[in-house]
Amino acid sequence: MITADSLDPLELALDRLAQGDAAALELVYRLSASRLLAVCLRILGDRGDAEDALHDTYLRLVAKANGYRHGRGSAMGWLVTMARNIAIDRLRSRASVGLAAPVDTAEALPDPEPTAETRLLTAESDTRLDGCLSTLEDVQQIAIRSAFFTGLSYAQLAQQRGVPLGTMKSWVRRGLAKLKVCLEK
């Protein structure tokens, strides 16, 4: 049986939102917005755009409040995915109307070491994922991380890195296969 104690606060707040408790949205926001904004900002590179994506994320959350499924990843992970997809949609629609996307190249990678404070706040510090990523070849790990943090497509990643499309695909696919095996151990 799931008790209140066994749930993380964000999960509990999402449950309340899904049950129609409107006040829980503010709690969800307080517990997640700063992390989701970091994700949006990383992808979009522009503060105003990122705040807009954050706004859209919580509107979508209200529409899909009962979409979170216990047991498949954390509540924060579910929200991160939602925010990331919204930010990527925004990035691609911006590109399609001819605005240059602010793509940094080598700088696209996150800081290698999260700060102590971030660690402290990390409800789901996933050392297993970190550990498995570190078993990949550097080019594979960098390609997967870049894909996650920038939201760029294979073709864009290949261009950014100055390698043929096939090479980028091969790095990512081999890296993902290895990652999967490691995570399933």
């Binding site: 700063s34 992390r35 579910w78 800081d111 999260p114 404070e117 990390t122 789901e124 996933d126 991380r145």
Partner: peptide, 18 residues
């Protein structure tokens, strides 16, 4: 499943207050 597996990568980013 993949989304859930990869999402914790976001923990590496420093939180940004909106």
């Amino acid at each position: 499943e993949w989304e859930a597996l990869l999402a914790p990568l976001a923990n590496e980013l420093d939180a940004v207050l909106p």
